[in-house]
């Protein structure tokens, strides 16, 4: 109940910040000094948010598709040889700092949205891949045996049994990826990508805390709402997969 109220408030606050930023002028004024502007106006907050979300959305979609395909591949007989390597890469790869991955993408890609997209994509692969692997390798053996015994083909088993049952765990991986990407994308503005990081950096450069708080607040609210949306999706899919007993 309280959680629901809190989420509604978060959504309302986010909408207000994006659609009528001027109405918050007096709220942010105490954070400024020397008559600095309290609200970031160089680019509209809404446009930055949309571009931020687009960047994250594209990267997360791409990494989800590639990582799920990869997870399926290494759990098939044809790709099983890659399993030990894939496991090690995912556990070691996740220790790579996202900022360093972003910085390293710049020499290869130049400045702009490109390196940010590549870094988010690469970094986002790991959680989804790891969860896909876990989910596909821990399915109930009796269900798989029954599916084979009833004459489902490999493809039918994958699409009708394995993926639907693995979905909740895969979604948890996508949630992790989405939340990390949302935060990392702000750093993309240091390499000239259009994201909410632009507002924060403008605040850092002009020593205007109002901008820093604005950028941080919007990104934080987005993260909370996306996290929550994914959790709903997960429990819905777990319920559909018959994995959770209704209380």
């Amino acid at each position: 109940m309280i959680a629901k109220l809190f989420l509604t408030l978060a959504a309302a606050l986010l909408a207000a910040l994006l659609f009528t930023p001027e109405s918050f002028t007096e709220v942010f004024r105490p954070l400024t000094h020397n008559n600095a502007p309290p609200i970031y106006l160089q680019t509209s907050l809404l446009r930055l948010t949309l571009s931020h979300l687009a960047l994250v959305g594209i990267a997360v979609t791409a990494s989800t598709l590639v990582a799920v395909a990869g997870g399926v591949l290494v759990t098939r007989p044809a790709g099983r040889e890659f399993l030990p390597l894939a496991r090690t890469i995912t556990s070691v790869g996740q220790t790579f700092p996202p900022v360093a991955v972003l910085a390293l993408a710049v020499p290869a890609m130049g400045f702009g949205a490109g390196p940010t997209l590549v870094a988010l994509f690469l970094y986002g692969l790991l959680p989804v891949f790891e969860n896909t692997l876990t989910a596909l390798s821990t399915l109930p053996p009796s269900v798989l045996e029954a599916a084979r015994g009833m004459g489902l083909t490999r493809r039918q088993r994958l699409w009708q049994v394995e993926l639907p049952l693995a979905l909740p765990v895969i979604l948890a991986g996508v949630r992790l990826t989405a939340v990390i990407s949302l935060a990392t994308a702000t750093i993309g503005s240091t390499v000239a990508a259009k994201t909410l990081g632009e507002v924060i950096i403008a605040g850092l450069l002009s020593a205007n805390p109002a901008f820093v708080v604005q950028g941080g607040l919007i990104t934080g609210l987005l993260a909370i709402l996306i996290y929550e949306a994914f959790q709903r999706l997960e429990s819905w899919s777990a319920h559909r997969a018959g994995l959770i007993r209704p209380q």
Partner: peptide, 22 residues
């Protein structure tokens, strides 16, 4: 073909193996 053969033969196992999502 194995999968066509299996569709002609009933198969029931320990722990039933029902599809939990169906």
């Amino acid at each position: 073909e194995p999968h066509l053969l299996r569709r002609r033969i009933g198969y029931a196992i320990q722990g039933h193996g029902l599809f939990p999502h169906r």
